[in-house]
Every structure is written in structure tokens, then in C-alpha cells.
């Protein structure tokens, strides 16, 4: 199967492509030159500066909190919507689909400014809550569309079969749907988390006193120039993620082994 080999080759190339800038970020985070335009030997100075930068660390924390809440809420709503739509047989399916995808069509700056007016009219103070709501509306379509393409594949006779076997609706969900949807749930959560974590535009308009997110901090420091400690932070985030992935991966492996033995 030579075509398969070519396809695999291209796919591996894609993974390399994805990590090219990451490699550059890591390499340049040790660059003594203080600018990305040339390389002048190694230093740990930027990491030291990074940990002394309390304001930057604070923004990282804000971003992480907002992203976790956003991703969890978006995925939960997305699961419900995808399952509901997969079982919905009435008219207006297409309209429902268009409705959930609608926020995607609106440029974020428009939505951001408009939401800002809504929040100010309703006297909701700007902060973590408004950030989550803003990020929710941009990540919900992503999460839902990912989940829907998977939910649509489920056999429509599943719920009846489960009910016949004596499952309550909640059991049907946890024992039948959730395991089948799990890859899509993971994909949806990750996509929403990432969307929220890297959002600039919505955050610009919806952040309030003391709730500056990491991308906002970085974006606003462009006028005075990006410091190399931003590279160091980028490198650290990647390393941290890889460590978590490995840890989770190992624990999951163990669970699978334990379960298969019992």
C-alpha cells in the first residue's frame, strides 16, 4: 500500500510542522541576545525574570481559571445540544444547526463590543464572569459541532435498547452515550479550552479590573516590545502540558490494566 505510506508520511510531516514554531520558542527562550533576530549564546536570565514577574503570573492564573470553566460549561452544553439534535426529528433541524453556529459568523470584535454594551446595560461588573460568558459564546459552536458530528453517528435505536434493558435516562447517558462519545467529548473540551486560553479579542472588551488574561497582557506589551521571558513562558507551558499528558497517560494505562485484570 504505497498510498498509505505517502499519507502517513504527510501526516507525520504535519506533526513536525506543528512543532516547528514551538521548537523555535524553546530555543530562543535561552537566547542571550534579548531579541529574536539573532542568536548570541545561552542564558537562563529570561526564566529568572519570568518568575519574578508577578503580574505575568497573575494573568496566567486568570487565563487558566477562565479556560477551565469555559471549556467545561461549553462541553456540557454541547453534549446536551448534540444529543438533543441527534434525537430531534421535527422540523427546523437546519435552523437549530444554524443557530448554534451563528456566533461563528460574527466577527469577534463585533460580538465583543456588543456584549460589552449588554453587560453595561445590565450592570454586570466586568471580570471573570463576563470573560467566561464571552469565551463561552465563541467556543460553544466549536464544541457543539465537534460533538454533533460524532453524535450523529450514534445508532438511533440505542436509547430504546437501553430503556428496554432497564436503564434510567441518566444511566443511558453515563453507560451508553458517554463512553461512545468520549473521544469527541475530549476533543470538544480541548478545543474549547484552547479557544478560551488563547482568545484576545473578546477578552479585550470583557475583562475588568484585575482580570487581565495572559494573551491580553502579551498583546498590550507589543508597543514596548515582547520580552524574551514571554518565550520562556511559552516554553514552560509546553513542558508543563507534556508532563501532565504523560502523567495522565500513565495513570490511564494503569487503570486500563487494572480493569482488564479484574
Amino acid at each position: 500500500m504505497t498510498v498509505d505510506r505517502v499519507v502517513n508520511g504527510i501526516a507525520r510531516g504535519v506533526f513536525v510542522f506543528l512543532y516547528i514554531p514551538i521548537a523555535a520558542v524553546i530555543v530562543y527562550s535561552f537566547n542571550a541576545a534579548g531579541t529574536n533576530t539573532r542568536f548570541e549564546g545561552l542564558t537562563l536570565q529570561w526564566y529568572v525574570e519570568l518568575f519574578q514577574d508577578a503580574a505575568l503570573m497573575q494573568t496566567l492564573q486568570t487565563s487558566a481559571i477562565v479556560a477551565v470553566i469555559t471549556a467545561t460549561v461549553a462541553t456540557a452544553i454541547g453534549i446536551m445540544f448534540a444529543l438533543g439534535l441527534a434525537r430531534y426529528r421535527g422540523r427546523g433541524r437546519a435552523s437549530l444547526l444554524a443557530l448554534i453556529a451563528l456566533p461563528l459568523i460574527v466577527p469577534e470584535i463585533v460580538l465583543g463590543v456588543a456584549m460589552l454594551s449588554v453587560f453595561s446595560a445590565t450592570k454586570i461588573p466586568l471580570g471573570i464572569l463576563t470573560l467566561v460568558l464571552g469565551h463561552l459564546i465563541v467556543s460553544l459552536p466549536l464544541a457543539t459541532l465537534v460533538l454533533m458530528s460524532s453524535a450523529a453517528m450514534l445508532d438511533p435505536s440505542l436509547p430504546e435498547a437501553a430503556t428496554d434493558l432497564g436503564c434510567t435516562p441518566w444511566q443511558t447517558f453515563t453507560r451508553v452515550y458517554f463512553p461512545l462519545l468520549r473521544p469527541a467529548v475530549v476533543a470538544a473540551w480541548l478545543l474549547s479550552f484552547t479557544t478560551s486560553f488563547s482568545n484576545i479579542v473578546m477578552s479585550t472588551f470583557l475583562s475588568g479590573v484585575g482580570s487581565t488574561t495572559l494573551p491580553l497582557k502579551i498583546y498590550s506589551s507589543l508597543k514596548t516590545g515582547l520580552t524574551p521571558s514571554i518565550n520562556a513562558l511559552g516554553a514552560l507551558l509546553i513542558l508543563l502540558t507534556l508532563v501532565i499528558v504523560l502523567l495522565v497517560g500513565v495513570s490511564q494505562m494503569r487503570r486500563i490494566l487494572v480493569e482488564s485484570r479484574s
Partner: peptide, 25 residues
């Protein structure tokens, strides 16, 4: 799942940091 994570991990580095890395490259 691991491969999927590999796809998404680069995007946990800030967008501007990645874009500036491309500018460097």
C-alpha cells in the same frame, strides 16, 4: 488520544508568541 493532544498542545503557547516564532523562522 495522545496524538490528538499532540495536535492541540502547540496552541497552548500564546498565539502572538507562535506568530513571532514564525516571523523568526
Amino acid at each position: 488520544g495522545f496524538l490528538l493532544l499532540l495536535v492541540i498542545i502547540p496552541f497552548w503557547t500564546d498565539f502572538l508568541v507562535r506568530t513571532f516564532a514564525w516571523i523568526t523562522i
